[in-house]
Amino acid sequence: MEYLSYLVATGISTGALYALVALGIVVIYKATEVVNFAHGEMFMLGGFFAFTFHVMLGWPYLPSFALAVALAFAVGVAVDRIAFRPLMQRRTLVSVLLVMIGLSFVLKGVARWIWGGKGDYLTFPPLISPEPLSFAGIMVMSQQLVVLGAACAVMIVFALFFKLTRAGRFMQATADNPKAAKLVGLRTDRVYMYTFGVGSAVAAAAAVLMAPLTLLYPDIGFMLFVKAFAAAVLGGLTSIPGAVVGGFLIGIIEQLAAGYLHTAMQEVAAFIVIMIVMIFIPTGLFGLGRIRKV
């Protein structure tokens, strides 16, 4: 019993990381109908930015955190300007995806170029004590609880944002029908721009919080992106609560697969989930009930 509860508890705490990354993917997808293939690289860059300010330059934690998130926002805006806006006018999704793939490789190469000589896996100090905490006999890394809290907070903020604010409804309207949104006078291009910025900023925040546990290296992004994408797909790709639930589920599935089947399954579980969901329930658990023809 202890074995199972450990696996589930750890699944939830690692799932929080996937959920937080998946949130960014879903927010961008909701508004733009594009999966940001370079989202994992946003996470990586956010972590390296914070490392540069906090560790290399010795600035205090919070300003470094804020600046890293702000810079990631700027990178997100740049992604919109470079990869999305020019192509959206041509409306060729295949091209957008190809550019994103290219971008993810360029960003990896650039990160290697700048930070690659500093060591194999760079370390970043945690926000709170590194000691694990006990919950009813189950030990959990305290840093993971921070991420868990952050994932829930970000999810609630986004859910409220989309429901209650005008900007949120603009985003949703833009996603549902860009042409109509434009016809009624929405500045859809701005909506896209902010969406990319916000998505990247969330990834960067996740990176700064998680870096003490995940460590920082140029190739951290891809695996994280795949797992977060599996989470997002499981949750239906358009649903914000779906992304969070999907994140937790992927976390737990991985743990159970590794714990009960074979430890080799831990790595590949996310890919299998993607394939199964795509083929049998393409709308995911919280999807819209129909697939947009994209």
Binding site: V35, V226, A264
Partner: peptide
């Protein structure tokens, strides 16, 4: 899968397939 999926869904389903193939080669 291509009969049911298109665009981004197809891309990522095939990516998952590719990674699974890679995993199979090593395991």
């Amino acid at each position: 899968p291509a009969l049911r999926l298109s665009g981004i869904y197809l891309a990522l389903a095939t990516l998952a397939f590719a990674q699974f193939t890679f995993w199979l080669m090593t395991h």
